[in-house]
Design a protein around this nucleic acid. Sequence first.
DNA 1: GCCAACGTTGGC
DNA 2: GCCAACGTTGGC
Length: 154
Amino acid sequence: MRYWLFKKEPKNISIDHIEEKGVQNWHGVRNYQARNFMRTDMAIGDKVLVYHSNSEPSAVVGLAEICSAPYDDVTAQDPDSYHHDPKANPDNPIWTQIDIRFLERFPTPVSLEMIRSDPSLQNMLVIKRGMRLSIQPVEAADFEIVCALARRAV
DNA sequence: GCCAACGTTGGC
DNA sequence: GCCAACGTTGGC
């Protein structure tokens, strides 16, 4: 099993949305590296840290799991979509999405600052300068540490 | 295939 | 809202 961090501004998709819907399609990814993670490296059951970016504070706020195979992100073909890509069409959908299932909301969100100040989490991609990937692989050890921090009672 | 210009991301 | 850092685009 692999571990991932999915980043989104909460005004687009938040842990509230994911909990409410139970299953959330993760659409709107328009970066080839992030797309290729979905296409080739993810499997059903992989665990996903849900991260709120551009937030107060930006933080890992919950846990989900991959619950579908990758499939076409048709919002790319919709001229009215915020995520429209004029190069995408049914013969060449270009972009991919995947479904995640809500598992848990963390009692203690793990903020960027907490990750940055934890000596054992210094390899996490999310704190790397200039890191903008919206889908990032996470090491198993880092995943366990983040979950342990997040599940502490406040 | 280089690389400058541009648009976007996202922390602050 | 600012702006550093990055990915993408397109002229050459």
